[in-house]
């Protein structure tokens, strides 16, 4: 509790109620956070984004002494949650985990929200896609797979996420880089990476372009293998998986990332404090151990760099989605 008297509280509450929003930030800023903070997650409980958000929330809660409540606002391919973050009051008491979809959805015409609709706070994670195939299938390495696709366009089917999702785009980008059209490997929409990996094992599809950690369980179970990752360098957690550049000479990389942001127009001091706290959380051993255990990549970028990162991502998504025929305009 602060040193304000109870009467003072009631008075200021009444003032806030009558004078609308004017009085609120003034009180809120006095000692942020002095009440529970909501962390909105646009994806469901149980997924990687949810897990990452929950560990970050747990660390922030421990360090700041106020509850950080993770609230799942799911559905609409991420639109619902992202819009809940953007439309919340910018008082520092509602923040959220934004994901790569924020640079994609508005090109598809699903929403008007884009990276600039937020106050960026920090980038915390990025995972590049891999190319996974059935363990006992015909493909031994990425070169052989690439040759097969070139010789038999339309024959193989791929999956990993919904139509127009990040992993779909990863596939299209890779095909384009090889000089092929998007329909050389038709996309089978799925409810995420896990069902796609299972369908791969069941023989329903031929390749899955999800991130390697998402495919890890099936790979460990001996049902699937990863032929390459679409990143600048190898993942230290999966050192045996080569990059596209070293095998095919293709320098194409795209990744799914997660960061923390608030609604546009957050007070600068609260935003700065949050970024500092997020840095502390990022450097903590709890966070590092957790991300390592799940095989998730860790990347740090403070607010301004995060904003640049999103702007760049947004521009490259625009052209990638246009060439894949996924952009609306």
């Amino acid at each position: 509790m602060t040193d304000l008297t109870r009467r003072g509280f009631v008075a200021s509450a009444a003032a806030a109620a009558s004078a609308g929003l004017i009085a609120k930030p003034a009180i809120a800023q006095s000692a942020w956070p002095n009440r529970p903070v909501t962390l909105v997650v646009p994806w469901g409980a149980g997924g990687g984004t949810d897990a990452t958000a929950r560990i970050v929330a747990a660390i922030l809660e421990k360090n700041l002494g106020q509850p950080f409540n993770v609230v799942n606002r799911t559905g609409g391919s991420g639109v619902v949650g992202h819009s809940a973050i953007a439309t919340a009051a910018p008082d520092g008491y509602t923040i959220g985990m934004v994901t790569v979809e924020i640079t994609m959805m508005h090109h598809q015409g699903l929403t008007d929200l884009k990276p600039t609709s937020y106050t960026p706070l920090a980038l915390m994670n990025e995972d590049p896609p891999g190319v996974q195939v059935k363990a006992d299938g015909q493909f031994k390495d990425i070169k052989q797979l690439a040759e097969f696709i070139k010789a038999n366009p339309g024959k193989l089917k791929a999956s990993g996420t919904g139509q127009g999702g990040i992993w779909h785009l990863a596939l299209v980008g890779w095909l384009n880089a090889m000089g092929l059209k998007a329909d050389a490997v038709p996309w089978v929409p799925s409810n995420g990476a896990a069902p796609a990996m299972q369908d791969l094992a069941a023989g329903g599809i031929d390749l899955v372009t999800c991130s390697v950690p998402e495919g890890k369980a099936m790979i460990d179970a001996g049902k699937a293998k990863s032929l390459a990752i679409m990143a600048a360098q190898r993942n230290p957690l999966f050192p045996d998986v080569p990059t596209l550049n070293e095998t095919l000479g293709i320098n194409y990389s795209v990744g799914a990332w997660r960061g923390i942001a608030g609604p546009k127009g957050m007070p600068a001091d609260i935003a700065a404090k949050l970024t500092a706290e997020l840095k502390k959380a990022y450097d903590s051993s709890e966070f590092k151990d957790f991300m390592k255990a799940r095989g998730f990549g860790t990347v740090w970028a403070p607010a301004n760099e995060f904003a640049d990162f999103m702007a760049k991502g947004d521009a490259s998504m625009a052209s990638a989605m246009k060439s894949a025929g996924l952009a609306k305009s």
């Binding site: 509280f9 009631v10 200021s12 509450a13 806030a16 109620a17 609120k24 009180i27 809120a28 009440r35 529970p36 909501t38 509850p67 409540n69 993770v70 609230v71």
Partner: peptide, 14 residues
């Protein structure tokens, strides 16, 4: 259960 029940006018008190 940490369900974000609306706080409304009591925002600054609770």
């Amino acid at each position: 259960f940490r369900i974000p029940l609306p706080r409304g006018v009591l925002t600054t008190i609770l």
